[in-house]
Design a protein around this nucleic acid. Structure first.
Length: 306
DNA sequence: AAGACGAAAGTGGTTGA
DNA sequence: TCAACAACTTTCGTCTT
């Protein structure tokens, strides 16, 4: 259980300028946009600490707090539309409910364009992240990036889907659990090109230091997919570390290199996988695996007994 | 029959004028 | 903006086990 102490400083940028966003139930860093805490109303006693702060910032109506947390933005907006489009034959209880919703929504001003944008983007982010079964921290990081992008007015002229996908891609890389563009593309509603463009754009504008992904970051995931042991995994990492030191990886596609290292390791450790299998999980071709592994074997003086 | 190998031609993205 | 370029892919035939 987090305490109020935990929310005084942003763990990302160290800023103390944290604000409480009552519509989302989140504490957000005003400098970098990182969501320091969310669903804080659910946490119990702590929320009162922020309630005082929030009371100063904006007046509150009597709506239950729980309503503000869940059912945010998107879903109530959809309710709206349904009412407007076929606004007939609605029961009186329903009508009353909708009336209350409308009143609530007006007060809370979710109809604000930027808010809707954000609500949609966050739900999109959520969808993609869960489809890729990404950990929570990655999702949060992506959301933080997106918020920052919004604040810097970077979405203008770009599709929300493209930017969200790009944020997710960036977040994965920053968290050292890279997904390939292809993997992101599969769950995104835009194509690779758009994601790539958006990614480069926000990376530049938000001054993200974009380090090319290390092949090592892929090893664990590929090894798991191949059912390889820890030992083999570590062997592959050792190979890669040496290769990186010798500059064998620069300019090469990280996935191809990772695949090659895993192939070598699998042979060395007696858990041999075929080039085809390794190529498959790494989303490269056998030829690439072959070329990389030839290089590695030659330059690192590894002798393979096939 | 399956895997490994490599040559040759094609593709998409980056870079530098 | 365009062409050169390297990495990577596709395709296919050959060799090895």
């Amino acid at each position: 259980m987090p305490s109020a102490e935990d929310f005084k400083k942003c763990p990302i940028c160290g800023s103390v300028k944290l604000i409480y966003d009552p519509e989302r139930g989140e504490i957000v860093c005003t400098d970098c946009g990182y969501v320091v805490a969310q669903n804080i109303i659910d946490l119990g006693p702590e929320w009162r600490a922020f309630d005082a702060d929030q009371r100063v910032k904006r007046g509150r109506v009597g709506a239950p707090m729980t309503m503000m947390i869940h059912d945010k933005g998107l879903s109530s907006t959809i309710d709206w539309k349904n009412k407007d489009i076929h606004g007939h034959d609605i029961s009186s209880t329903m009508r009353a409910k909708i009336y209350r919703l409308r009143k609530w929504q007006r007060r809370i001003r979710v109809s604000d364009a930027a808010e809707r944008n954000l609500a949609f983007a966050l739900s999109e982010l959520d969808r993609m992240a869960s489809q890729l079964s990404l950990p929570r921290n990655v999702k949060e990081m992506a959301a933080a990036l997106y918020r920052k992008a919004v604040m810097e007015r970077l979405i203008r002229g770009r599709s929300i889907e493209g930017v969200t996908a790009a944020c997710l891609y960036a977040a994965c890389r920053m968290a050292k659990v890279p997904r390939t563009l292809d993997e992101i593309e599969e769950v995104a509603r835009v194509d690779k090109k758009e994601i790539g463009r958006s990614y480069r754009f926000i990376a530049r504008e938000l001054h993200l230091k974009l380090i090319p992904t290390s092949p090592i970051d892929y090893v664990s995931r590929f090894a798991d997919q191949l059912g390889l042991s820890e030992k083999t995994k570590n062997r592959a990492i050792k190979i890669l570390q040496k290769a990186i030191k010798l500059g064998l990886t620069s300019g090469r596609g990280p996935m191809g290199v990772a695949a090659a290292a895993l192939y070598i390791a699998s042979v060395l450790e007696g858990e041999k996988r075929t080039q085809r299998e390794v190529a498959e999980v790494a989303h490269v071709t056998e030829v690439t695996v072959r070329n990389r592994y030839k290089e590695l074997v030659e330059k690192l003086n590894i002798k393979l007994t096939l």
